[in-house]
């Protein structure tokens, strides 16, 4: 009950946020929701099923390029691009999962394989001139005033609400997943794969399902990215640091929990912003100083809160995970 009340209050604040927030606060909030959503998607694979992916930028990038490329070359908007993005990323996730799980690759090796696929694709996209190559793909910026949800063209507030809706849907979807048969099988696999197999769970099939769901969800974040920023560079979108940004949220917030990715994304982005402003106030604006502080805070959090912030906070608030 308590959890429901707190969640409703949070949702209410988020729904009315654009009415009193300035443009800068709105863009920060949109970014938080973006990483909360992508972190939620990653969490399905790692937090639920225990498969560590360090290459989720692959799905963000392929999703973004699929939708943006379609729009750029045929004029078909986001409503069409999103299906292409989801389809491509599901196929890609299935292919990587199939290869990895068939050949019995797990743990560190699986994580490194996902990095390899992301890096391979990054360099590959640098050589696809049809999608702009290293010079980037730019899509037309228009309709900055109205709300065109079908084509994802509109005001910053529209993008905020789209992201909020995606986050809410992902939250509910993950809640249902955790309560479903798949959710319990995944947790069994995460805790002890051999034991799960001995109990008759087809671990291959359920791990595949986790990868496919996670990659499909992540591709939608990519579509949003493409139409929100209107420019794509392989060097940025497929870069390993993008994957790290996605997974820091859930790890800091609390891996395997529903609220962890959201809290983690908020904490990380507000922290990064706070450091920027703090350093500006002190006059220490050398390149790199901000990231040093950021790294130090990450170090402290991971050392003293190994299970993330949310489990500790949830106890204080008296709500379940």
């Amino acid at each position: 009950m308590r959890a429901k009340i707190l969640l409703s209050i949070l949702l209410l604040v988020l729904v009315f946020f654009p009415t009193f927030a300035g443009p800068y606060a709105l863009s920060v909030a949109t970014l938080i929701l973006f990483f909360a959503y992508a972190g939620q998607a990653w969490n399905v694979m790692m937090g639920f099923a225990g498969q560590l992916s360090l290459g989720h930028s692959l799905y963000v990038g392929v999703g973004a390029y699929a939708a943006a490329g379609l729009y750029f070359h045929t004029g078909l908007g986001a409503w069409a691009g999103i299906w292409l993005a989801i389809l491509l990323c599901m196929l890609l996730g299935a292919a990587i999962g199939f290869l990895a799980f068939r050949f019995g690759i797990s743990g560190v090796y699986f994580a490194l394989l996902t990095i390899a696929f992301a890096e391979f694709t990054r360099i590959g996209f640098d050589h696809i001139q049809w999608l702009g190559g290293p010079g980037g793909l730019f899509i037309k910026v228009e309709h900055r005033t109205g709300w065109d949800l079908v084509n994802l063209r509109g005001t910053p507030a529209m993008f905020y609400y789209v992201m909020l809706a995606l986050c809410a849907l992902a939250f509910i979807f993950c809640f249902l997943l955790l309560k479903s048969k798949a959710g319990y099988y995944w947790q069994a696999i995460r805790e002890n794969e051999e034991a799960a197999q001995a109990l008759g769970i087809n671990t291959f099939r359920w791990k595949m399902l986790a990868v496919v769901i996670s990659s499909a969800m992540t591709s939608v974040a990519g579509v949003f990215y493409a139409f929100y920023y209107n420019n794509l560079f392989p060097e940025q979108i497929f870069h390993i640091s993008r994957s790290i940004e996605i997974i820091l949220g859930p790890i800091i917030g609390g891996i395997g929990t529903l609220f962890g990715p959201i809290l983690g994304a908020a904490v990380l982005i507000l922290l990064s912003d706070g450091i920027t402003e703090g350093l500006a106030a002190l006059g220490w604006e050398f390149p790199g100083v901000k990231q040093v502080f950021y790294g130090l805070v990450l170090l402290v959090v991971v050392m003293f809160l190994p299970r993330g912030i949310w489990p500790a906070l949830a106890r204080r608030l008296g709500v379940g995970k």
Partner: peptide, 16 residues
């Protein structure tokens, strides 16, 4: 993933 986080934090500090 916890070890990964730790060393990524160390790496971020070092490079910057």
């Amino acid at each position: 993933h916890s070890q990964f986080m730790l060393l990524v934090a160390v790496a971020i500090i070092m490079v910057n």
